[in-house]
Design a protein around this nucleic acid. Structure first.
Lengths: 201, 201
DNA sequence: GTCTATACAGTGATAGAC
DNA sequence: GTCTATCACTGTATAGAC
């Protein structure tokens, strides 16, 4: 994210770095980290494979760039939801997005969740940086529950529950290849939000 | 599971097949499918690597055997919970198990969830067989919610929500390396079960 | 049934010309 | 900055002796 501004400055066709990250973003989601080769990324971005190493020192470096890009995406999406002044409406705006992404999740799961799942087994630093994506979700939800009247620990627990359902539903939608599952779970989540919000006040 | 009886019949030290499945079970969980080589499994099971192919035609065959073994484990665990006559107590027995497996989940995630996550991106048949593990959970929970008074669709949606929280919490506990997260979410799930159960009757 | 040796296909990464 | 060629290595899988 520190260099994403630099990445975007030149939007000429010569912005190979940006194209590599965009392609890697999609391919890592669809095929997983281990299942995606640098040759795959290079081909999709229309870059010669050896040239990747001019922009990224190692494959992990490219993965890191993808994680940073996801961070930007998440921040932007949550900022859009923050337009609404009502915290409960914000949370439900989130679940509306969930339901809408059913087809997507059913095919490949949540891009951030599956990435964390795969990197979570590693003991090097890569697992910690992917955790930052989930932290964005949790802290955002935490703020909403605080505004709804929760104390600090309640807000945290509710926020984790909120994100858990999101991630769990994405996993199950993908496992069962069922987009409607996301729609149904978004409804469940809405009902749960109401019980929590009503109890908090 | 069809040949698990055969596997168990001879418990001599010569039961190499059983040892291979046991080792693969653990290693696939800790390192992922792609991250685990047949050499890893062979070494852990104290079997020469070339010999694996006498028992399993391909690596995917071994993965399939692991999935079948997980199926047996899940069935046994759920059957143990069924000893309790009260469906609500059964569900809470499940969440107690969740809280207890915090350390485990924090290090490597849920063995079944991470397996589904990784295989879910594949388009061959392997993704469907791993889905069977999740079906076991969902159908079991579905039966409990039916007994609590839910109609068919409500029971299904509640069951999926139940398993979603389980899976999502496991993912987050692993992502944040936080065993306590599972304990807190087990409590959240208990509270949710109560609201659902009380509303159903 | 068990083991050794090895074929074979990638895959990440580097060197160096242009 | 870009490209070609290639290295070093790993991983699945097979052949065949014992």
């Amino acid at each position: 994210m520190t260099d994403s501004a630099q990445t975007r400055r030149g939007d000429h066709r010569a912005d190979k770095r940006g194209r590599l990250v965009t392609s890697a973003c999609r391919l890592l989601h669809e095929q997983g980290v281990a299942g995606t080769t640098l040759a795959d990324v290079a081909k999709d971005a229309d870059v010669v494979v050896g040239n990747i190493y001019y922009y990224f020192k190692t494959k992990d470096d490219l993965v890191q760039a993808v994680i940073d890009a996801h961070g930007d995406t998440i921040r932007a999406a949550l900022a859009a939801l923050d337009q609404d002044p009502d915290p409960r409406a914000r949370l439900k705006g989130f679940t509306r997005g969930l339901a809408a992404s059913g087809e997507y999740a059913a095919r490949f799961g949540c891009p951030h969740g599956t990435l964390c799942s795969e990197l979570g087994k590693r003991a090097d630093g890569m697992d910690q940086t992917s955790a930052a994506m989930m932290t964005l979700y949790v802290e955002w939800a935490e703020r909403q529950f605080r505004l709804l009247g929760d104390d600090e620990t309640a807000a945290h627990d509710h926020a984790v529950m909120f994100v858990s359902v999101y991630q769990g539903a994405s996993l199950l939608a993908n496992t069962f290849r069922d987009p409607d599952l996301m729609v149904a779970q978004a409804r469940q989540l809405d009902a749960w939000i109401d019980t929590v919000a009503d109890a908090a006040v």
